[in-house]
């Protein structure tokens, strides 16, 4: 399979897997915002998801495969790029590259570490101090679990920092997808770049508002 080794082919895999994860992130954010409806919102949402049974596991396996491809190629390409540019200039000015574009590997690895923590925290619920219980309707009480977790400033901080990393990663990654798929022209480039950054910001705001608002209300009380 030539495409798995090609300079362009591997980029295409990076782009497609990355963009699928962006779609997941959007859906996940919309699902999370059901917490603002109250216990009835997010507990019912979580129950719906878990009632899907085997579908959940098929989805998780697919997502895991995408994450694995994205990370493996990301590390491989970064190592190759560093090897292709072994000597640093004494003086080097960045003309067009951004903080986001030059730190993709680090923001990416930060997000990967966060995802591991997040799964242990809210999915496997094995980290210390997770409040577990059921609500009045016998559903798993996600609302109380999340609210009690984010009253802890340290945990809220970790979540917000990770979402900032996600913002930087996507502010380069989303527009990069269109370039890699060959759907960019000099006329669309500026618009696509703006839309990419806007989507990245909406995801940052949509995710970070949950820990921030919970922590803020806990501090005010």
């Amino acid at each position: 399979m030539q495409i798995l080794k090609s300079v362009v082919g591997r980029k295409v895999f990076m782009a497609i897997t990355g963009q699928c994860m962006v779609l997941f992130a959007v859906v996940h954010m919309l699902g999370n915002s059901s917490i603002f409806i109250g216990p009835d919102g997010i507990n019912a949402y979580a129950k719906h998801l878990h009632d899907l049974g085997p579908l959940v596991w098929i989805f998780r396996a697919g997502l895991f495969a995408f994450v694995a491809i994205h990370i493996c190629y990301g590390i491989q390409l970064t190592l190759e790029n560093n090897a292709a540019n072994p000597t640093a200039y004494a003086v080097k000015k960045q003309l067009k590259a951004t903080f986001a574009s030059t730190t993709m590997i680090w923001t990416g690895l930060l997000i990967a570490l966060f995802v591991i923590f997040h799964i242990l925290h809210f999915t496997a619920r094995v980290t210390p101090g997770v409040v577990q219980g059921v609500d009045a309707l016998g559903r798993y009480d996600v609302f109380t679990m999340v609210v009690s977790a984010f009253k802890n400033g340290g945990i809220a901080f970790v979540y917000v920092v990770a979402m900032c990393a996600l913002f930087f990663h996507l502010s380069h990654g989303i527009q990069s997808f269109f370039q890699t798929m060959g759907w960019n022209t000099d006329r669309t480039q500026c618009t696509i770049s703006t839309i990419g950054k806007a989507v990245a910001f909406i995801l940052l705001a949509g995710y970070a508002v949950i820990p921030i608002s919970i922590l803020a209300s806990a501090l005010i009380k």
Binding site: V7, K11, N81, A84, N85, K96, T98, S101, M104
Partner: peptide
């Protein structure tokens, strides 16, 4: 030839 991969920095 040992060139790196493009990661769309546009530099």
């Amino acid at each position: 030839c040992g060139f790196g991969n493009c990661s769309n920095h546009y530099e």
